[in-house]
């Protein structure tokens, strides 16, 4: 440790980091797992293989993945437009991206429900062609897309800003067509940021509660998400069961994020 560092006070800052992370994350999580451990292995197995929990898990993770995937594609497009083109109202649009961050999720949920309900502005048209938006899994997907979208744009933006047009032009001079340039030059450079954006949007969506409970019908087996199931368990004063479901959710989320990180690394090592 004799090497001099740019920022002094390594010991102090590391100490702060450790204490801060413990207070903020580790201790609450430890308390959660401790509470969950109270029911024993059999209790865990019973709760986590319960049909209703499984249905809710499938819906939560499935809808979150779909929403994050859609956000990734549309997010790339929107970022591209915002970064590469200059047009009136660009700054306003740029600022608008952050709205889902700032809006209380309950407000988002109520607004989306009002619009997509069978008597809402958009919902009325969808209803006419037989599509049920609010109070269905589709509604949950919409809410999760809404709250996850900014994560993708905000992770993509700085990367795309650094990725100047020269590179594309160089590819063109070497005889690459548009598609080839996009597939072999642009996309690989953006891939890590895209994956990070997807991951953030996905992680955010899994835990989302506030907006979803308004737009989903909250029906067991059909439109019930895991966070709602946790809250219902709490309402029944069944804290250990709530803790078990929460822990299960955390473990799965952590495993998924870990896999995505591995993928990220593997991609970074790939020769371009």
């Amino acid at each position: 440790m004799s090497k001099r560092r740019v920022i002094p006070g390594f010991g102090l800052s590391l100490g702060f980091t450790v204490i801060y992370l413990s207070l903020l994350i580790l201790i609450p999580l430890a308390a959660l797992f401790l509470k969950a451990a109270g029911v024993g292995w059999r209790g865990w197995l019973e709760l986590l293989t319960n049909e209703r929990v499984l249905a809710a898990a499938k819906l939560t993770f499935g809808a979150s993945a779909c929403a994050a995937a859609l956000s990734t594609v549309t997010g790339l497009l929107v970022t591209w437009v915002l970064v590469r083109y200059r047009f009136p109202g660009r700054r306003l649009m740029d600022a608008m991206i952050d709205l889902p961050f700032a809006l209380p999720t309950a407000v988002a949920g109520i607004t989306l429900t009002a619009i997509y309900a069978p008597n809402g502005w958009i919902g009325a048209y969808l209803d006419r062609i037989g599509i049920k938006a609010a109070y269905s899994p589709l509604g949950i997907f919409l809410a999760l897309t809404f709250i996850g979208f900014p994560f993708v744009v905000r992770t993509m933006q700085p990367v795309l800003e650094d990725f100047t047009r020269d590179t594309e032009e160089a590819a063109a001079t070497l005889g690459a067509g548009r598609w080839t340039t996009f597939r072999r030059v642009v996309l690989p450079a953006l891939m890590p940021a895209l994956i990070t954006g997807f991951t953030l949007a996905f992680a955010r969506a899994i835990g989302e509660y506030g907006s979803v409970i308004f737009i989903s019908g909250n029906l067991p087996y059909k439109t019930e998400i895991l966070p709602l199931l946790i809250v219902s368990k709490l309402e029944e004063f069944n804290v250990p069961a709530a803790a078990v479901i929460a822990s299960g959710m955390l473990i799965i989320s952590f495993a998924l994020l870990f896999c995505i990180n591995l993928l990220q690394r593997w991609l970074n090592w790939q020769p371009r």
Partner: peptide, 18 residues
């Protein structure tokens, strides 16, 4: 079709959302 968490929520669902 919808299970709200409280009576007021259900009122909204029925009366306002139709």
């Amino acid at each position: 079709p919808v299970l709200d968490t409280g009576a007021r929520g259900s009122t909204t669902t029925f009366a306002q959302r139709g």
